[in-house]
């Protein structure tokens, strides 16, 4: 249960950070999806059951803090979580140093899913600038791992000490 609280708090804080400060530091469209990095981190480190619950909640909150149709980000984040969780169990991502590859693939596919859903929903037409947006956002989000991973690892270590977990 403590794990779930940690995931939810960290996830929701990342959303608040994204919707307020981050867009003023970096170009609005290309700002990294910190919440997705949190999802990937949970997929590697977290318990499956608490992970999936927190990721779903995070997706719903993301829907409400963005213009997304309700249900889009829960599906995307759950898919990302399941993919990362599966790869991690099969290959031990951290030991083999696959973090970067997993992050890049997950980000790219997740961002493609956003536009695919909007296109299928009749909300947008295909524009070449979308590909540029997806690629740049994937690069920036993946680079965000440099900051987000140590912060989350540190926060998790501290939290574990406080609650006395292993």
């Amino acid at each position: 249960m403590n794990e779930l609280i940690f995931f939810l708090v960290v996830g929701l804080l990342s959303l608040v950070f994204q919707s307020s400060v981050l867009g003023k530091i970096l170009p609005f469209e290309y700002k990294p999806d910190v919440a997705l990095l949190v999802v990937i981190w949970i997929g590697v480190k977290g318990d499956y059951f608490y992970g999936i619950l927190s990721v779903f909640t995070l997706g719903l909150a993301m829907d409400l803090l963005s213009g997304s149709p309700l249900g889009l980000f829960p599906v995307i984040y759950l898919s990302a979580f399941l993919f990362v969780s599966y790869v991690n169990q099969s290959f031990d991502v951290e030991r083999l140093g696959l973090g970067w590859s997993i992050t890049i693939v997950t980000c790219f596919v997740s961002f493609c899913m956003v536009f695919l859903a909007r296109w299928l929903g009749g909300q947008i037409l295909f524009e070449s600038s979308i590909i540029k947006l997806i690629i740049l956002k994937t690069i920036l989000t993946s680079l965000g791992l440099l900051i987000v991973k140590p912060v989350l690892d540190g926060a998790w270590k501290g939290y574990s000490k406080v609650i006395g977990a292993s």
Binding site: Y48, I52, F56, G71, L78
Partner: peptide, 26 residues
């Protein structure tokens, strides 16, 4: 990765719920 039927059911239920929300909210 789902380790049991229970885990798999949770994933499927949440994914389905997400999809229902998605299609209804369009």
């Amino acid at each position: 990765m789902p380790r049991s039927i229970k885990d798999l059911i949770v994933a499927v239920v949440l994914l389905s719920f997400g999809l229902v929300l998605l299609f209804s909210s369009f």
